[in-house]
Design a protein around this nucleic acid. Sequence first.
DNA 1: GACAAACACGAGCGGTCGCTCGCATTCTGG
DNA 2: CCAGAATGCGAGCGACCGCTCGTGTTTGTC
Lengths: 221, 221
Amino acid sequence: MSENEQKEQPRRRQARGERRIAQLLEAAANVFCTTGYTAASTNAIAREAGVSPGTLYQFFPNKEAIAIELGERLMHEMRETYGEALAPVDPATPLEEAVGAAVDRFIAFNCDHPVFFALMHGPDLPGRITEEHDALHATLLARVEDLLGSLLPDASPADLTRTAQVCLSVHKAGLELVLAHEGAERDAYVRELKDVLIRYLEPLVGDRLGRPAAVTTTRSA
Amino acid sequence: MSENEQKEQPRRRQARGERRIAQLLEAAANVFCTTGYTAASTNAIAREAGVSPGTLYQFFPNKEAIAIELGERLMHEMRETYGEALAPVDPATPLEEAVGAAVDRFIAFNCDHPVFFALMHGPDLPGRITEEHDALHATLLARVEDLLGSLLPDASPADLTRTAQVCLSVHKAGLELVLAHEGAERDAYVRELKDVLIRYLEPLVGDRLGRPAAVTTTRSA
DNA sequence: GACAAACACGAGCGGTCGCTCGCATTCTGG
DNA sequence: CCAGAATGCGAGCGACCGCTCGTGTTTGTC
């Protein structure tokens, strides 16, 4: 085990190969979307892409690598398109606006790439994808915690984490509802999701005028 | 195909058989809980129960039947234990109390039977279990709609349905969070879940004194 | 045009899974 | 006590899945 570096020596790809890869990833997205990761068979992905199983394995070492590459491309696109959606929020923006904007961006991305939800929240994913999801979750959690922390300087870290977790979970639930509907109904669910979050957070932050955030229930019992 | 009634002619079961069935169902619950339905192998269930695969198939015609029987027993127990948790609510009870009681009961049941969540919300379930879930969901939806309808006589049916859907989705998300924690942290998440629901609903129902339910956002755009 | 590398194919290998079947053992009614 | 039903076993069948491999085709380079 001295220097058998089998480091990925990126094979010389022809344009044809890159096209095939994109084609295969798109096919994989479709199949993952409709059947989930585990139930999706590599043969089915190859068939969907109109190629043979052998061709698929010309470009991906195994099934997991397909999901990983897909996940990484989605992550990259998300950071590129909406990367600054998670940027520190100007504390001057009203809560409604901040929540509304964040929700809108995430909803839009997930509507454009429904496979993202399947890959991130699927139940039987390979370890590597779970890591990606956990990393994203941790990032979002930290962002929300920071935002909440700047609004609730007196809250304990544990309370902050919990509140942020609740926000993300509620968001995920709402996203699921939104994706399950279309057109006007979908828009209505987006409104509801925003309302849930805003009404949950509003009593905590008051209207940020120094009012001691009238909570009706005891925290950290 | 005139009268080949292969109707389940319930085989004469001995006490031993009933014991085996219970044993197998408990083993199945464990395996389903940890690996999910699809990934659970019948051989693994048999091994967990300490019997041979053949013995398992002495009592269940196939893998799906195990999940179905398990689901039906859970449903039955739920209706028996908490059946009246869904009973029409006395309109005099304050919202907080009604929500709190309903949440507490569902949380308690799901904590006692974690396999219930796995079977109801798993992603790759057989058709029959999906039917059970849908039936339960429809029942709960109707209950919540009724309750909301009595509090919001002016809301359109579509709005009622949507609001009820949001309540159930939020509840599911909260349940997931609660099940992921233990002890004091778990209790804290229960509190949060109740707060989310109460704060979401409170502006809609006002405090039921004829106040026109000051909503801050437009509904049915 | 020649040569190698990249690309494409699809039969099929090894493995797992749901499930079966023949046979042994235990229980139960008469 | 014994015939037959119920229970129990576990090797293994057929199907499918992830993946490989030998072979043939296309593409880039000189």
